[in-house]
């Protein structure tokens, strides 16, 4: 693999003065033109991770580099932000209701003083995001557009700056089902035509199957499984990934493993493997049979060292 577009190394993000480790020692690399889906339940730290990539959350430890250059504070941050763009879950909230569509798209162009005739650039960006003819949208306001159109405006505004990395926070979760595919196809088309890389945060495994080259599953601030989409989703190794897949209604034949208990809370981090209080292997006695139950309860673990592309953080897999 050539130089990665994004490399996240041992990143930690903390809240509440260090009492909550929302992201706890995460490393991830994203290659050029690669789509990575970051999957997990709310509170697993996936959104915090991508917000830290774009500088919206300060790092407590670790480092993030985009195209080999470390992300720091100050002057370099602005140049970085042109390279890294973000789209949001709620396109309605992400658009200032007082700004017209033209202004929403032009905002980034102005911040980065992009050369060229502004109205033409804006129109081209809208057209490339499927809002055709663009003249029809320029003067409108966000509330006059549908949810899908608003998300297209945000994608247009992000892509207008020619980023190398696009971060997407639940890009289709608030959209109607029939719109979903169109937006995903649009995102994927920018990968194929412009070589942009995408990190998409989602709870929707179907999205990963639809557009992602690789999947990283997060649980309580850690990546517990990462690998090529086909391998992770067809042959998951971590019991958490297996459980997540089993409750997807479209997958038949898999016995449902509904985990009991609440969505995990990062302010109360369990000892040992973070997943052990909900782990079906521990609950069923399988872990005891394998003789690893003490390690599950007492020994914290990270992803196994790089042996292949598909890596897991689970005592049972290593046993």
């Amino acid at each position: 693999m050539s130089e990665p577009v994004l490399s996240v190394t041992n990143v930690q993000v903390q809240f509440g003065g260090g009492s909550v480790r929302a992201v706890d020692t995460v490393s991830l690399e994203v290659g050029r033109g690669e789509v990575v889906a970051l999957v997990g339940e709310s509170g697993c730290g996936k959104t915090t991770l991508i917000r830290s990539i774009i500088g919206l959350e300060p790092l407590a430890a670790g480092s993030i580099a985009v195209e080999g250059r470390p992300v720091g504070r100050g002057r370099g941050l602005r140049a970085l932000r042109r390279k890294v763009q973000m789209i949001f879950q709620d396109p309605t909230g992400a658009l200032n209701p007082r700004h017209s569509i033209y202004e929403a798209v032009a905002e980034g162009l102005r911040i980065h003083k992009v050369k060229g005739h502004e109205p033409t650039l804006v129109a081209e960006a809208l057209a490339s995001a499927g809002l055709r003819p663009p003249e029809r949208y320029l003067r409108r306001f966000p509330h006059e557009l549908s949810g899908g159109q608003r998300q297209r405006v945000l994608i247009a505004a992000a892509m207008a700056l020619g980023p190398t990395l696009l971060l997407a926070d639940e890009p289709v979760a608030s959209l109607d089902a029939s719109i979903r595919g169109e937006i995903l196809a649009l995102m994927r088309s920018f990968v194929d035509t412009r070589g942009v890389s995408i990190v998409a945060v989602t709870h929707d495994l179907g999205l990963a199957w639809n557009i992602a080259d690789r999947v990283a599953v997060m649980y309580l601030g850690r990546i517990v499984e990462v690998g090529p989409t086909e391998e992770v989703l067809r042959a998951p190794k971590h019991p958490y990934t297996q459980a997540l897949l089993s409750v997807v209604p479209e997958i038949e034949g898999l016995e449902q493993q509904i985990l009991t208990g609440e969505t995990p809370d990062p302010s109360r981090m369990p000892s040992g493997c973070r997943f052990h209080p909900r782990c079906p292997l521990v609950a069923s006695g399988e872990a005891e049979r394998l003789g690893i139950v003490d390690r599950c309860r007492g020994v914290d673990l990270e992803l196994e060292p790089e042996v292949g592309a598909h890596r897991v953080a689970c005592h049972a897999v290593r046993a």
């Binding site: 549908s146 899908g148 159109q149 109607d176 089902a177 029939s178 719109i179 979903r180 595919g181 169109e182 937006i183 995903l184 196809a185 994927r188 495994l205 179907g206 199957w209 639809n210 557009i211 989409t229 086909e230 989703l233 067809r234 897949l245 997807v248 209604p249 479209e250 997958i251």
Partner: peptide
Amino acid sequence: AFPTIGDPASRMNPAGLAGD
């Protein structure tokens, strides 16, 4: 629009509906 995970037809092929 709800892809079947494991189904090659929907892999890298999100299906949707034009319009709103």
